[in-house]
Design a binder for these strands. Structure first.
Length: 770
DNA sequence: CCGATACGCATTTTT
DNA sequence: TGCGTATCGG
């Protein structure tokens, strides 16, 4: 069933989809169907006569979510059999896959650890200490940012040391030792068999640069490369894409320069602005019809972004109704701002019968959320907050994961330091310090030093020695276990035998309870993961598999199809790519939005303006802007003035204040309300100790592995095409076909919400619905 | 090795 | 203000 591209796409979309003779740049205005173009384009490439095989296509995104959604949409068009072989994923996940396969070329093993930003900061902190540098001058965060910046520009320690500009910059910042820190950091990561997020890019670049035969292999495989959100790529990403595509020029990048808001993470808007200079034969397509917002919203956003100097000019338009003007609210205080917004939401709900999920409150900084939480809670309006700690960043989870990491890669320094004395086993900082210096003196990993204390001249007493060897034996026993245990069995084992369970179960204080629940949730997660992989036909799911899966996962990904009817509270950054019927952009004050950090940098100011542009263009039907004249910040009352951005929007599209008549509520309660703040949203989805209704997973019983849980397998035997089933994870779906028999029986199922999947019936957990 | 207290500091965060 | 880290005392 070939897609009818002309009918389902508008003219410019269609042109962008069907042009594939050379490099192309698709400038996709907000709400213009960017993802649609990308998915149709890939489908088109697959469906053409003599078209591409799925494994010939590399599609890079920035989030796992985007990759997953796109893959599902493509699967709907060309079928899962083909879609599953596409190379589609984030830069980081695709590159880590390549690096694991080619690890030996660059002196790593395929088990290398991925350090997250906390790991890398912690390593930097200890390096700074070891070097005897002043931690006030060399703040780990600042040092980390500089090193990250260097890596994003593909500057290695050698290059950095030789780089005059960098050194002068460091001198000016009174941090001449950064180049030495960088060198040590680099070596220590290698010693630990670890890469940080930036390294995944740097080493991929180096791999391709230094081993032309490897590059040739991938270049030949990836006959077409597509990149989403190109405005957010950094120099390293740009360079790798160039390595892969310079020769055959089959590359298509999609993005919107007006939505480039991640320069603080190294994104370089010049990549998109000058793409046509790098690929001189680029054909440029502009998607200018906005299908999301009313004309008023689109025009207002246009009038705003027009004030930016650096951009690719385009004329975004909407053919939806004109809509209402953008309302501007002035509040006397931050608290009143919360009241105004909450009241307006209630009013809109009454007037238009909107659901709660149709509303979003967007702010510049996370700190602003509290005021709105309070206002909404006072009125019993349900809401959910995005942001804050992700599941995998919680301390207790990181502790458990550290065990996993050390078992998979004993050289992992950060994991080692984290658990050498957790749970407490009498190995203090002094001992760890000795291990570190012995290890660095001899150029070996901490683990190596621990295993052979004599060889590396570790000066410790008998008792300590015994404790260290006890730890070694513990980890080694886990390493041995790996051979015949799957991730779930390993996980439960480790938690029990390491003493974590005891530690957590000891006291029954409320916050400890949540720690326990989190660990249970993690165990459930491992179980789910194993089950899922088994359903997909991979019987042996190792701890390594689980680790490489979660290293690059973020909270946003664990898409808990949960909480429906709630108002969304989030930063503008995290709202990118989303849309809501009604959007409130709040805190439009100087020094807040635009952020006070922009100083007098025009580039930074323009980025703030783009951020505001992103915020406004999230709205489909109604958009409101608000500011407060006073606001509590850092414990003090501050006076603010309306954001200059309010004047950037053509007044023609605005409905100006409205001295909203809510001032009665003024500052009553401006004091504190911290006591009763709602828990982190994550808490709501954490499994209660009693397993979830559909699920039948025991976190306690041993040896229950991830084998099919009993209740379902009986009904599974007689599954046939045409039946409706309900899967524990994917929900409702229709059986398309069943192939194979016995243990190999496999069903293709079309899920309403999860797309097409092929599941091994032996493991599949679902029941037939009448 | 843990707890209490002091200090400093503070955007945004796709990986 | 309120959190996370640093430091000191038991």
């Amino acid at each position: 069933m070939n897609t009818n591209y002309i009918e389902e796409l508008n003219e410019s979309q269609c042109a962008a989809v069907t042009y594939n003779d050379g490099p192309s740049l698709v400038i996709a205005g907000a709400g213009s169907g960017k993802t649609r173009v990308l998915t149709y384009k890939i489908a088109y490439l697959l469906e053409q006569e003599n078209g591409y095989n799925p494994w010939n296509i590399l599609a890079l995104t920035f989030t796992n979510k985007a990759a997953r959604e796109m893959k599902e949409r493509i699967a709907r068009q060309v079928g899962m059999e083909r879609a599953r072989y596409l190379w589609m994923g984030t830069f980081h996940s695709i590159f880590s896959r390549i690096l694991r396969a080619e690890a030996q070329y660059i002196g790593f093993t395929s088990q290398f650890t991925i350090y997250d930003t906390a790991d890398s900061k912690s390593l930097l902190r200890s390096i700074i200490k070891e070097m005897g540098l002043d931690e006030k001058t060399y703040k780990p965060g600042v040092v980390q940012a500089r090193i990250s910046n260097a890596k994003n520009h593909l500057v290695t320690p050698t290059g950095y040391a030789a780089n005059k500009e960098a050194y002068e910059g460091d001198m000016a910042a009174k941090m001449p030792a950064i180049r030495d820190i960088y060198t040590r950091y680099w070596d220590r990561c290698r010693q630990a068999g670890a890469m940080d997020f930036d390294d995944l890019l740097v080493y991929t670049y180096i791999l391709f640069r230094d081993f032309p035969e490897v590059l040739a292999r991938y270049r030949d495989q990836f006959r077409y490369v597509l990149v989403d959100e190109y405005q957010d790529t950094n120099y390293a990403q740009h360079s790798i894409v160039l390595q892969l595509t310079k020769e055959n020029q089959r590359v298509c990048v999609v993005g919107d320069d007006a939505q480039s808001i991640y320069s603080f993470r190294g994104a370089d808007i010049d990549n998109i602005l000058y793409f046509t200079k790098i690929y001189p034969n680029t054909k440029v397509f502009k998607l200018e019809q906005n299908y999301r917002s009313t004309q008023t919203i689109v025009c207002a956003a246009n009038s705003l972004i027009e004030k930016n100097e650096r951009q690719i000019r385009k004329a975004v338009f909407s053919e939806k109704e004109k809509g209402e003007p953008i309302g501007v609210f002035q509040a006397y205080s931050d608290v009143e701002e919360g009241d105004i917004v909450a009241n307006k939401i209630a009013e809109l709900r009454r007037e238009y019968r909107y659901g709660y999920a149709d509303f979003a409150i967007l702010y510049r900084t996370n700190a602003q959320s509290r005021i709105f939480e309070e206002a909404l809670r006072k009125r019993s309006i349900p809401y959910k907050i995005y942001g804050g700690l992700s599941f995998y960043q919680r301390k207790e989870i990181k502790d458990v994961i550290a065990y996993f990491r050390l078992v998979v890669n004993p050289n992992d320094e950060e994991a080692f330091k984290r658990i050498i004395n957790y749970p407490a086993r009498g190995i203090g900082d002094t001992t760890v310090g000795k291990i570190i210096s012995a290890a660095t003196d001899h150029g070996v990993s901490l683990w190596a030093a621990l295993c052979e204390p004599l060889t590396y001249g570790l000066d410790i007493n008998k008792g300590t020695h015994a404790k260290l060897q006890g730890f070694r034996e513990l980890i080694e026993s886990f390493i041995v276990d790996q051979a015949d245990k799957n991730a779930y069995e390993m996980g439960t084992n480790i938690i029990r035998q390491s003493g974590i369970i005891n530690d957590v179960c000891q006291d029954t204080s409320p916050e400890n309870l949540s720690r326990k629940e989190n660990i249970e949730e993690l165990v459930n997660g491992i179980n789910d993961f194993c089950a899922l992989r088994q359903e997909e036909g991979n019987p042996n799911v190792s701890l390594t598999d689980f680790l490489s899966e979660i290293a690059l996962l973020t909270d946003q990904d664990s898409d808990k199809a949960d909480d429906g009817e709630k108002i969304t509270l989030m930063t503008v950054h995290s709202a990118k790519g989303l849309e809501f019927k009604n959007v409130f952009v709040v805190g439009l004050e100087e020094n807040l939005f635009p952020s006070g950090m922009v100083g007098d940098s025009p580039r930074a100011l323009e980025e703030e303006r783009r951020l505001f542009y992103v915020a406004i263009t999230r709205a489909e039907e109604h958009c409101y802007l608000s500011f407060a004249k006073t606001r509590f910040r850092y414990g003090k009352m501050e006076f603010g003035s309306p954001s200059r951005f309010l004047r950037d929007i053509d007044v023609h599209y605005l409905q100006l204040p409205h001295e909203a008549g809510v001032s009665r509520a003024v500052d009553e309660g401006a004091g504190r309300f911290r006591a009763s703040l709602q828990q982190h949203p994550k808490a709501q989805i954490i499994a209660p100790s009693v397993p979830r209704n559909l699920k039948k997973v025991s976190t306690v019983s041993p040896s229950n592995g991830a084998q099919a849980t009993s209740s379902t397998s009986a009904s599974v035997a007689g599954v046939q095409a045409g039946q409706m089933i309900e899967h524990e994870r994917f929900g409702l779906g229709e059986v398309i076909k069943v192939e194979g028999t016995g243990d190999n029986a496999k069903a293709t199922i079309h899920f309403k919400n999860a797309g097409d999947k092929q599941l091994l019936l032996r493991f599949a957990r679902f029941k037939v619905v009448e």
